[in-house]
Design a protein around this nucleic acid. Structure first.
Lengths: 349, 349
DNA sequence: CGCCATTATGTAAGCGCTTACATTTTGCGA
DNA sequence: TCGCAAAATGTAAGCGCTTACATAATGGCG
């Protein structure tokens, strides 16, 4: 019963079999195992069959850390989103992940809670964890981040926004244009007194662009910027409601309230009902994103439809191409369209 | 200008500094660097300060794969959820991730799309990727999975459900009891003709338990099981609507329709409106989960509130304790409560 | 001041893979 | 049958860390 723990083939505590175990069992070298698994064509049919059988029999699973270390790539893609707790990101991320899975990559998620510093930290974190590429939301972010990505030549794409001025890979839509179109539609309905409920614009180019879109439209319709009150609140139904109340309590309340997203709009809608205001009889209200909420609110919301799932999948595809060095265009603009339901009507009076 | 590429200290293509670089720069051994970073107290104040400064100066970030390989742990926790494209999982996952981040772990996500085989595959995948622990939804799954986890003694917790019969770590709520309580409430309102719209129960113990809850309540009220039609559809507003229509077209339509979740209920609600049925005047409709949809539907939904965020955080805490070997109870039952809004009323007639 | 228990640091052997490079086998034309 | 290019396989050096063990520095005490 003496036991020299260095005896080869020693019982290594019933842990995972390693490549060496497989090599021994199959009577080939580890190199052959590795090749069989990663470049099957470089191995003879006979050997491949034998190795595969052994792999199967032993239940061998390559150790990922080792693989990542040796090959200097992890098969892992990171995503840093503001929050999953918002249908639009959750949905896009789900699609992103599905596509990634199809391509053999795994998703590492972090969230920034809309805080630039936190985002920077998360980027560092994910890089240290060896992600092969990164999905980021929007263009705004700490310059350190870009530098960091640059210096490591780590592929990344900015999603949920599209702006050819930024010379980086991205897949998204033109927030400004979308909102401009919506606003024009509103103006075409005779509204001249508008109000905006936006997410905080600082550090959030999407929110900023949307407001810009509104402003461009109103300006070209001859309204001066000062005429359009803009409230900034964090995304939530409650905040939407409050902001709406505030907007309506002035001496000359807007006849149309443009919300930065559907969640805010639904809050506004609820508050309108509560205040005894009819929508769109007394006020029109619009949203952005076209999430489920928009369909089932009552009345259903007129909003801007954004192809979140498509965006997620497309971003994944692009990232994979960047990782693998496949030639590809770097920028994808996805179309949005306004979906007219029942909360936008003629201006009263 | 001659360049022997093997010269030590050679310019390794301006890549990340390694622990060796830091060691050289700080004039200590790599062991000391490692200790400074991982067990600061084991290093003298002077050395620690010098090392930290060097780390800072070089912008050193330890390579995760190497760390994981050497230490045999990855600081990464995997989660396999049916889909992120459902507010309840997204929300819970967000909370889960926040807590994980607080504890220094990172989240690796995969989704099973409600398919047992896919789930098994994802488990394998995440294990190979070296996760330190796993979050799983529900108790139902391929037995191979449990065996796999067992044999590697990989910590895991089953969430979104609580059932002391299963002897595994879990944090969740009693789906059956929650639904039983809701159903009793419905019966107390005089309803005797019920209908159920559920998610497919196969491979989904949560859906199954919920239906069981309904049945327990109806049975103890003297109704026979056959009296309660049960439709199974995948979660979606549209499916909820269709199922509702089907339920109502019989010769003796139910006066109360119990839905497996809010999404289904909202679909049913919409269809009721469309069919000219008043809710709860003609039919009562209930949901489950209490997501945002429930508040803003019209009329707002009577449903079961589930503390998704709390569940996510709690699951993360538990998992971390399991990983670190801290002593802890293994099962956490979270309370649910029924929130009475406006879709449940007295039985007509 | 010298001894010895502490405390701090260094040495070097892996962790489980990949992959240049070296060696052996195979297959085929002459 | 021989020679040789191509195909298959093997050898072994890392990848960047952690950590057991060895060694050196420190400091308290008689």
């Amino acid at each position: 019963m003496d036991s020299k723990s260095s005896v080869p083939g020693d019982a290594r505590r019933r842990s995972q079999p390693t490549i060496d175990d497989v090599a021994d069992a199959a009577g080939v070298s580890t190199a052959t195992i590795s090749r069989t698994l990663n470049e099957p064509h470089r191995v003879s049919d006979k050997t491949r069959a034998r190795v595969m059988a052994t792999v199967e029999r032993l239940g061998y699973q390559p150790n990922f850390s080792a693989k990542a270390l040796a090959a200097n790539k992890s098969g892992t893609v990171g995503a840093i989103i503001p929050t999953m707790d918002n249908a639009i990101f959750a949905r896009g991320l789900q699609a992103f992940q599905e596509q990634l899975g199809d391509d053999g990559y795994t998703l590492l998620v972090a969230s920034s809670s809309y805080q630039p510093d936190l985002e920077a930290q998360q980027v560092r974190n994910l890089i240290a964890r060896g992600v092969d590429a990164l999905l980021l939301i929007g263009h705004d972010r700490h310059p350190d981040i870009y530098q960091m990505l640059q210096s490591r030549s780590l592929p990344f794409v900015n999603a949920w926004t599209f702006n050819p001025e930024h010379d980086v890979a991205s897949v998204g839509f033109d927030n400004r244009a979308a909102m401009r179109v919506l606003t024009k539609e509103i103006l075409a309905n005779g509204h001249r007194s508008l109000g905006v409920i936006s997410a905080p614009r600082q550090h959030n180019d999407r929110a900023r662009e949307r407001v810009e879109g509104v402003l461009e439209a109103t300006k070209s319709a001859g309204l001066s910027a000062g005429d359009v009150p803009i409230l900034e609140v964090n995304y939530s139904i409650g905040n939407g409601a409050e902001a709406f109340a505030e907007l309506m309590q002035g001496s000359q309340p807007p006849t149309a309230v443009i919300c930065g997203n559907d969640v805010l709009a639904v809050g506004a809608l609820g508050k309108a009902k509560q205040l005894g205001l009819s929508v769109p009889g007394d006020v029109s209200i619009t949203g952005f994103d076209d999430i489920e909420l928009a369909q089932i609110s009552s009345p259903p919301l007129t909003t801007v439809h954004v192809p979140h799932r498509k965006m997620g999948r497309q971003a994944a595809k692009l990232l994979v191409k960047l990782i693998e060095g496949t030639d590809t265009p770097l920028q994808f603009e996805l179309p949005t369209d306004i979906v007219s339901r029942e909360t936008l009507g003629k201006a009263p009076g």
